[in-house]
Design a protein around this nucleic acid. Sequence first.
DNA 1: GAAAATTTGTCCGTATGTATA
DNA 2: ATATACATACGGACAAATTTT
Lengths: 134, 134
Amino acid sequence: MIDPSADRAVFRQLADLLRSQIETGDLAPGEPLPSERRLAQEHGISRTTVRQAIGQLRTEGLVTVDRPRGTFVRVPEPMEIVTLARGEKAGARMPTDAERRTHRLGEGVPVLVVTAADGTVTVHPADRVQLARP
Amino acid sequence: MIDPSADRAVFRQLADLLRSQIETGDLAPGEPLPSERRLAQEHGISRTTVRQAIGQLRTEGLVTVDRPRGTFVRVPEPMEIVTLARGEKAGARMPTDAERRTHRLGEGVPVLVVTAADGTVTVHPADRVQLARP
DNA sequence: GAAAATTTGTCCGTATGTATA
DNA sequence: ATATACATACGGACAAATTTT
């Protein structure tokens, strides 16, 4: 239940609720969330607040939005292995807006950044690539 | 200049503007951004829209918010090297809400997830850890 | 110390646009 | 053509914490 008088913000309470439903499989991968209007009516809150909650889950990479079909639980991508060559270093960060578009990255998906000894940088979507030693 | 009639959403235009000021060093690390009200007045847009733009930069990990002092350009952390042992694989994802709290992670900071051959998983903040071969 | 101003956080309501079913 | 659903943008209001007066 969502309690407006609680300490935790309403939109966080709703995000927590949906997140736990995703984690328990109550909302399975590929399944749609209830529409924003549905959620707003069911919980007696405004659509703006619902959007804040869903926005939270989007930045966490838990859901994707297919506009205007709806919002869906993210389906895991098949993983590809990229080997880390000698002298290379790897880190991770969030992509810029431009990188998101060029690499067709979903929201809430970081990138793996591999830097070679000569400074060459390659970027991999972290939802499809894992690093390993050769 | 921000053009409300342009194809790109106003809040994205403002995010682009601020991002480029950060990239060029016009807004240096540790420096505060203008307040939300300032930005709204200067560009003739609503505070809601300004908050959307800043929210974008927060998810990209470019700025941090110290409420209610202001919003600041993120200061890079000193990097630590973690070696990837034989048989280990590494990936990256956004942290859960709980991980964010326990690791004191800022917004927009992914985690590096290292999985050993026996299934043991270790999590590292991506703003402070880079991976390398031994 | 006290009061006022500032700044971000949260929440609501409304309106319009755009793509899909 | 109608209805649905998400995206964008505006406005207002109050709370909480900090800084300034």
